[in-house]
């Protein structure tokens, strides 16, 4: 098991190294960063001075290593727009987005798994069709539109929830529902199909033939087997949620990492965009690694590998 974890960790580190390089190159993707920093009306010797100041005149590999060294020490550069260190800015914004994402994922799992179990246990019945309908609607509906619908209903027609900003815990309700509903269908369908195939397995027939209580058969034997792909999907969904929060945060005027990403791109605030790409990727990689480890805890066959 320890070897498995260490290997996963090593893979995650390699992956992050690669991503960090891509993130760094991003700085140059939009053209000469010295020009961007100096501004559109800058004279050529101003640009040259900026280039020297920021070290853009050095070989790119040296620049990258220098930057990476800084990143490892917690220095993510300075925001061109806010004129303050990006690290502190990200910390504030990510705290909000992570909270939103975690709540939304919890909601999605709480809805999707029981629904998937019920549907998978009795496929092609009324309850299964209902669950499927919910999934299709969820997959077909764009989140921004769903967000607007909720706002009209709960902030305008029945003004019980705040439409924008983060003033109290009630402000989280609508964004979490929108973000969570986005992930529910995929998890629900995977749970359903996983349960259907698990319940057809020979070991379930054995468990039933041995007279194990149905509750135990369903949850301890079948769901545990069906859970393996769900864990992997849920971690990927968490990554999608961070991306989805870009839309949701904008609609609900929440100042999280998602809206920061949106605005920074619009402002060409390259150091901030770069740091955000790095952080989003880090989340993704860490969650994939955690999912692999969780799966290994659930499945002894994986630990042996």
């Amino acid at each position: 098991m320890l070897r498995y974890v260490l290997r996963r960790f090593a893979i995650a580190c390699l992956l992050m190294l690669f991503v960090s390089f891509v993130a760094y190159i991003l700085l140059f993707a939009a053209g000469d960063p010295a020009v961007t920093i100096a501004g559109a009306e800058a004279k050529s010797d101003d640009i040259a001075r900026v280039r020297e100041l920021y070290g853009f005149d050095r070989p790119i590999l040296i620049q990258y290593i220098d930057w990476l060294w800084g990143v490892l020490g917690g220095d993510l550069g300075t925001s061109l727009y806010f004129k303050r260190p990006v690290a502190g800015l990200l910390l504030e914004r990510f705290a909000i987005t992570a909270k939103l994402g975690a709540l939304a994922l919890t909601l999605a799992l709480l809805v999707a798994i029981p629904l998937g179990v019920i549907a998978g246990r009795k496929p092609n019945t009324l309850i299964d069709r209902f669950a499927l309908l919910l999934a299709v609607v969820g997959q077909a509906m764009p989140s921004f539109w769903f967000a607007l619908l909720l706002m009209i209903l709960f902030s305008v027609t029945f003004p019980i929830l705040p439409a924008s900003g983060l003033t109290s815990w009630r402000s989280y309700i609508m964004p979490v529902i929108v973000l969570g509903y986005f992930s529910t269908p995929a998890i629900m369908r995977l749970t359903r199909s996983g349960m259907i195939s698990a319940l057809e397995a020979d070991y379930i027939r054995t468990a039933r033939a041995m007279g194990l209580p149905e509750r135990k058969v369903l949850f301890d034997y079948a769901l545990r087997n069906a859970a393996l792909p769900i864990v992997s999907l849920a971690s990927a969904e968490f990554g999608f949620m961070l991306a989805g929060s870009i839309i949701v945060e904008n609609v609900f005027a929440i100042h999280g990492a998602g809206s920061l990403a949106w605005e920074s791109i619009a402002r060409a605030d390259l150091p901030t965009v770069q740091a955000l790409v790095l952080c989003f990727s880090l989340f993704y990689v860490v969650f994939t690694m955690l999912a692999d480890i969780l799966n290994a805890l659930l499945d002894p066959r994986m630990r042996a590998r």
Partner: peptide, 23 residues
């Protein structure tokens, strides 16, 4: 259900798939 595996039991034919891989 209380009879199964208790008073009336069954041995299945495929030992490779008859056991739960996760327990």
């Amino acid at each position: 259900r209380p009879l199964r595996g208790n008073r009336l039991s069954m041995i299945f034919q495929d030992p490779m798939s008859a056991l739960n891989p996760l327990h």
